[in-house]
Simulated scan of single mutants.
Amino acid sequence: MKTIPCNPKASDEVRSVLNYFSKIEGKGIITGQHTQTMAQEELDYIHQVTGKWPALCGFELLGYSPNINYEDSGEECLLEVAENQDTLQKAWEWTQKSKGLLTFTWHWFSPLNGRDKSFYTEHTDFNVSKAIIEGTKEYKALLSDMDHMAEILREFCDKRIPILWRPFHEADGTWFWWGSQGPKIAKQLYRIMYQRYTNYHNLTNLIWVWNSPLVQGYVGDDVVDIISRDMYPPAHQHTDLSKEYEELVAITRTSKLAAIGEIGPIPCVESLSTSRIPWLWFMTWSQDFGKTEKFTTKEELQRAYHCDYAITLDKLPKLY
C-alpha cells in the first residue's frame, strides 16, 4: 500500500521514499545514527565494530541558527557550536556518495532574548505564546529564523534530495522553548512552519516527521507523514519497545508509519525480527550513545547490524 505524502506537491523522490517505507513496514528496521560534528566519530565506530554503515544518518543544525548569542555563552556552548560548523558538507557527502537516507535535528537557538544554549527554556526569555500571533515582534523573529533555515533546506530541494524533517522535536516536554508553554502552542508552531515551508517556500523535498507521543499534543494527520518519539531507556536495556509503540500509534486513528527519532541504548533487533513491531527506523543519539559501550556493547551492536531484519546502508535501494 502506498503512503500518500501530507504535502500534495511533494516531489517524486519523497513519494519514492514513502513507498519504500510502506513496503518494509514490519519486515525490517532501518539502522540510523545521529552525528553533530565534522569528525562523525559515531559512524566510524559503527563501521569499526560491525563492518557496516547505518542506512540513515542524522545531522545537527544548531550551529546554523541565526541568533546565537556568542557574547553571553559559556565555553561548552561555544565548543558545541564550533564543532557543528560546516557539517552540512558532511550531509552533502552522505547524499552524494553514499546515497543514504538523511535527517536533520535543529536545536534551535531562541529567535529572541537568548543566552548560552538558548534552545533550552531556562536560557531564554522568548515568549513563545506571542510567537504564534501575527504582527508581534516574536512572530516576526520566528519567521525570520524559519526563512533563514529554509534557504539551507532549499539547496537540498533544488538537488531533489528528500529530507526526513523532524522540527520542534520532543514537543511533549518543556525543556526546549518551543514546548515550554505546552503542547497546544507547540502544535501551532509546527503548523506555522508547515504552511511557511510548503506554501511560501515550496520545499517539496521534506518528509514531515512529528515527534511526540502525547495524544493531546498531536498536531494532526494533515501535516504529518510519519509519527515518532524519542526514548532513553536505562543503559544496556534492549527490547522491541512494543509498549512504547502502542502508546505512540494511539495518538491518531489513522494508520501512520512510526519511527524512533532518538534512542540511547539501541532496540533489540533480534526481538523485533520475531515480534515484528513495525518501527520504521531507530536513530541512536550522538556522542557517548553512539561511539562508546556506555549504553550498547559492541557485541549487541554487532548482533543488531548483522541481523537479517536490520536494514543497513548496503541493503538500501536507490531512492533518489
Rank of each mutant, 00 (worst) to 15 (best):
Y232M: 13
L241G: 00
D225T: 12
V224R: 01
D240K: 12
D225I: 08
V215M: 02
D222R: 03
N211D: 14
L206Q: 10
I227V: 13
H238C: 15
I207H: 03
H238M: 15
D225G: 10
G220Q: 04
W210K: 07
I207Y: 05
H236Q: 15
P233N: 14
P234E: 15
D222W: 01
S212P: 04
E244A: 11
H236N: 15
E244Y: 10
L241C: 01
L214P: 00
P233V: 12
K243R: 14
H238K: 15
T239M: 15
P213M: 04
V209R: 00
P213D: 12
V209Y: 02
P213E: 02
T204V: 14
S212Q: 11
G220Y: 03
I227P: 00
S242K: 13
H236F: 15
T204D: 11
W210S: 06
I226N: 07
M231V: 14
D221N: 13
I227M: 06
P213L: 00
K243A: 15
Q237D: 09
D222F: 01
L214R: 09
Q237A: 07
L206D: 05
Y232H: 11
T239F: 14
P213N: 03
S228I: 03
N205K: 10
Y218K: 00
W210C: 07
E244T: 11
D240G: 06
D230C: 15
G220N: 02
I227R: 09
D230L: 14
G220R: 01
L214A: 04
V219Q: 05
P233M: 11
V209C: 03
I207E: 01
T239C: 10
Y218N: 05
L214M: 07
S242D: 08
D230K: 12
V224A: 09
V223G: 10
D230Y: 13
D230A: 15
L214E: 07
D222K: 08
P233F: 12
W210P: 04
Y232C: 12
D221I: 07
N211I: 06
W208A: 03
T239D: 13
V209E: 01
Y218I: 04
V215T: 13
W208M: 04
P233A: 13
S212R: 02
L214Y: 11
T204S: 09
D230N: 13
V219A: 05
I226P: 02
D240Y: 10
K243G: 14
G217I: 08
S242G: 10
D222I: 03
V223F: 05
P233G: 12
P234I: 08
H238F: 14
V224F: 02
